[in-house]
Amino acid sequence: MTATVYAVANQKGGVGKTTTTLNVAAAMAELGSAVLVVDLDPQGCLTFSLGYDPDATEPSLNDTIVGRASLAETIVQHGEVDVVPANIDLAGAEVTLLSRTGREYLLRGELADLLDSYDAVFIDCAPSLGVLTINGLTAADEVLIPVQCETLSHRGVAQLLDTVGDVKRLTNRSLEIRGLVATMFDPRTRHSREVLRDLIARYQAPLIGPPVRKSIRFAEAPTIGTSLIGAGTDVPGAAAYRAIARELLGLPIDQELLDHAGWTDEQRDDVLDLSVEEV
């Protein structure tokens, strides 16, 4: 087994990168896959969401960056997935790496030894473009782009696609864009629907699974230290993440799951405006 490495990236903040990473990874683990998640964000939100105190977790990813520990030594085994934790010290990694030739390849090199131990590796990138995000994209096979369906997030996708172009040209020719994950989707607003349609049409990027509906449960989940999937919370968003995980694994998606995620054929045609009026 060799893991597929997914970078979950969008330079825009607050679009649901961490929530997407955590819940898709947990949904894959629920299907029997061995999954590793790497927290590449100095804010340590993924680490915190899994119930760890980022400031009390040692060693962390920063120890790997500065050469104090291998990536394998930093792995913490959570009940759902394995995690490489991060904390605010990772902010210094940008400076540590900046003068190093081949700095883009550090994470890729560290992950290489672990790929045989997992089915999937998810890298939760920081909401900025820096050496760490370039490391995440260089280490990845595929990029998942979480996108909140609103104008500034749309712009973030344009910027990320430009960055992916740079990474493919300079450090990782085999990097592929797997597609968009529509997050915090509210089908009742015309703006949400317009943005989603335009993203799919303009960038020819496929939409992975159904859009993830907005729910206060996602905001509450980090306090319990587990994903919504692991907590067994039954909301349409959790069903959407299960469908996304199945799509990434190439498994069939039950209509019942799509219905539960609020994405029936009629809803899909209506939201994406796929019906054509006959003249």
């Binding site: 349609r197 049409a201 796929l274």
Partner: peptide, 13 residues
Amino acid sequence: RPSRSRPAASPTF
């Protein structure tokens, strides 16, 4: 009704 396979881009964006 016949349907498109992809949505259309909007000039708004």
